[in-house]
């Protein structure tokens, strides 16, 4: 161990501990009392729609904002009274790809390296290492304003890793990425965790939380409304969502009456749509179609899919996740230019 390693020693048995975090802005209450605990070497996801308070929580944990109430320790240091100690131990990639468009990729990483207090001899090699790791070596000496959205995002995440932080905060890291870049980033995050990094990320996508995170906190309107492993969360509502279009409301109402009598099925109606969630989707679908067909209620449309954030919200809160439906729908077209 070098002197530097000693100076970054941590003094806590958890990477992040937050208790009762509260924050209000002029006209809105962003956090109403949030408790979090992130174990060392794990990935923790804050899952919620736009405006749920995820970003505010990240800003408080990364010492950018002060909470109005509650307290938080990152690597064992208080974010309010010992912010400098926290900053030595974290990396942050915020929601905006916060890099200087006039600098090249290499210059950006060197700048962050210097400001992260890397020893001078490490600044240049670390930049090279990260450019290679994120597939940016060919664009290394081009100004960032010539980069695509996906390249900027990769550079942004690379910049968060310059100081090899023990705790990494990623605010919606894959928003705006095409599927290939997103998968690459997931792989990178998993590699970092395998090497001992702890990661706190926010996402609007249940799929992302499910694939990456060891634990997930579902955030809604400034509160954590559910917390657990992805499996636990999904077990609350089933792993498959079946949606049947019945053509009109009258037929949909009759279908719900009929299906309610089926074992295990708990149909919900939304206008002429009937929705069922199940742990055993294929078998349920077969039963449902048989039952409906026998009564002359064959559906006009059928969709079978994995539950979305909105389904989690419906299951947990009974209301839709504001903004989440739209976000989920637009995802494929958000692929970076």
């Amino acid at each position: 161990m070098t002197d530097g390693a000693v100076s970054r020693a941590v003094r806590a048995d958890a990477a992040v501990v937050a208790e009762g975090l509260r924050k209000r802005f002029k006209d809105t209450v962003a956090l109403k009392g949030v408790d979090l605990r992130v174990e060392w070497g794990t990935i923790f996801a804050l899952l919620g729609p736009n405006g749920a308070g995820k970003t505010t929580a990240i800003r408080i944990l990364t010492t950018i904002l002060s909470p109005d109430g509650g307290r938080a320790q990152v690597a064992g240091f208080d974010v309010v009274s010992e912010p400098a100690e926290v900053r030595y131990r974290i990396g942050l990639a915020g929601q905006a790809a916060a890099v200087d468009a006039n600098l090249t990729g290499r210059e950006n990483l060197r700048l962050i390296g210097r400001l992260a207090q890397l020893p001078g001899r490490l600044v240049a090699p670390r930049a090279v290492e990260l450019l290679e790791r994120f597939g940016l070596q060919d664009a290394a000496d081009r100004p960032v304003r010539t980069y695509s959205g996906g390249m900027r995002r990769r550079l942004d995440v690379a910049a968060a890793l310059v100081q090899r932080p023990p705790i990494l905060f990623l605010d919606e890291p894959t928003t705006g990425l095409d599927p290939q870049s997103r998968n690459d980033l997931w792989t990178t995050i998993r590699e970092l965790v395998a090497q001992g990094t702890s990661v706190v990320l926010t996402t609007q996508y249940l799929e992302e939380a499910d694939r990456l995170a060891g634990r997930v906190a579902v955030v809604d309107r400034g509160l954590v409304i559910a917390e657990g492993t992805p499996a636990e969360l999904k077990s609350r509502m089933g792993s498959t969502v079946i949606e049947l279009g019945l053509g009109d409301e009258e037929r949909a109402i009759r279908s719900v009456e009929l299906l309610s009598r089926l074992d295990r099925a708990q149909p919900e109606r939304d206008a002429s749509m009937v929705r069922l969630t199940s742990h055993d989707g294929p078998r349920l679908l077969a039963e449902v179609l048989r039952a409906l067909d026998a009564e002359g209620l064959a559906p006009v449309t059928i969709s079978v899919r994995e539950p979305s954030l909105d389904d989690v919200f419906l299951a947990l809160t009974g209301h839709h996740a504001e903004g989440a439906i739209e976000a989920a729908d637009t995802r494929p077209t958000q692929a970076a230019s």
Binding site: G4, R8, D13, G41, G76, L118, P119, Q163, R164, P166
Partner: peptide, 16 residues
């Protein structure tokens, strides 16, 4: 204060 139970990646920060 809690015990140190975590191993963190090799640190290379200079305190100035």
């Amino acid at each position: 204060m809690s015990t140190i139970t975590a191993t963190i990646p090799a640190a290379d920060i200079e305190r100035r």
